[in-house]
């Protein structure tokens, strides 16, 4: 069989899928960012159906394109500080979430990687287990756990009362959002870290110890640098989805815990301002790409320095 034909047959369907459901929608969205909102939401139409003839008429042409295309949506994003602030806050949330996930996932992944084969499989299964129930149900469970009526809140507030501290409300706060984000994303940090740590050659730690390294030095000079690919993979899997998350701030957050995801959802669904929603989506994508580029650049620089 023809080799090139085989290549196209194999890679064709996924390419087509990506074209149809990723490339073309992205292009539509990028275009929408430059359009005006319609009178009743959505987009100002570029094509109209003539009520008399029933024929489609293209309204936009070289003479009047300024009535249909604009920079205003982007101007609005950069001129009103609230949007940039919201971006920064979302980055902050996603960053905190990633950091907490690394700190929590590292020892867990290490423990799994060092267990016997049988325990290891069981532990990995337990990490994946939450995926078997619906994401929203798990977030609702957190609403109950953090709610004022829960044992958790009551016990916590009684302990605080002993120290003379006012009762706190856990739900509908930034704290609750971070808890939710960490909870949902933790497995995405554990799994790549585990996959990385599991491959480590234990003889390297013996060698480091033999050559005079104490436990901390063995971790910091050997295990940590060798686990960085796992840390980066986990960071990408946690940071990017956390950045665009809207359900968790909606359900667990208070009025001040909005993230970009919520704003984008609001623009498309509530305000029905599709052009501005598109601008926000594009800015989100661009900022993630920019961060990835900076990370790649820093990584290659670090390597060259060695």
């Amino acid at each position: 069989m023809n080799n090139r034909l085989a290549k196209w047959l194999i890679s064709g369907p996924p390419l087509l899928y990506l074209l149809l459901f990723f490339a073309i929608p992205s292009a539509i969205m990028a275009f929408a960012a430059f359009r005006f909102p319609g009178d009743y939401g959505g987009l100002l139409p570029l094509v109209e159906v003539n009520p008399e003839t029933g024929a489609r008429e293209v309204l936009i042409n070289f003479g009047n394109y300024a009535d249909f295309l604009t920079w205003e949506n982007f101007q609005r994003f950069f001129e009103e500080p609230i949007y940039i602030e919201l971006f920064l806050k979302s980055f902050w949330y996603a960053g905190i979430t990633t950091g907490v996930c690394i700190v929590l996932a590292y020892p867990l992944a290490w423990l799994i990687a060092r267990s016997s084969k049988k325990t290891r499989d069981l532990l990995v299964l337990m990490v994946i287990l939450p995926f078997w129930s619906n994401f929203l149900i798990r977030v609702y469970a957190w609403m109950i756990i953090l709610g004022p009526q829960s044992y958790f809140s009551q016990v916590l507030n009684r302990v605080l009362a002993v120290f003379g501290i006012e009762p706190v409300s856990l739900l509908f706060s930034q704290f609750a959002v971070i808890i939710g984000l960490v909870y949902v994303h933790l497995p995405f940090m554990v799994l790549p870290l585990y996959a990385n740590l599991e491959k480590h050659d234990m003889a390297l730690l013996d060698a480091a110890q033999d050559l005079g390294a104490n436990a901390w030095q063995r971790f910091w000079k050997v295990t940590w640098p060798l686990s960085l690919p796992g840390v980066w993979a986990g960071t990408a899997l946690v940071f990017i989805p956390a950045l665009g998350m809207f359900a968790i701030p909606d359900l667990l957050g208070g009025t001040n815990s909005m993230m970009i995801g919520n704003l984008i959802k609001q623009q498309f669904l509530d305000s029905r301002d599709w052009p501005f929603g598109s601008v926000l989506s594009i800015m989100l994508t661009l900022s993630v790409l920019l961060m990835a580029a900076i990370a790649a650049w820093a990584g290659s620089r670090g390597k060259a320095k060695k």
Binding site: D201, A207, A208, D210, L211, G212, N214, K221, L226, K306
Partner: peptide, 28 residues
């Protein structure tokens, strides 16, 4: 082990893959 004036050449060599030859040797 880290406090003994004894060093080992391991069967698998156990060189640190993320360090150059010079960095490996500088480690102890």
């Amino acid at each position: 082990p880290e406090k003994r004036p004894v060093h080992t050449v391991f069967q698998s060599y156990a060189l640190f893959p993320h360090m150059t030859v010079a960095q490996n040797i500088a480690f102890p």
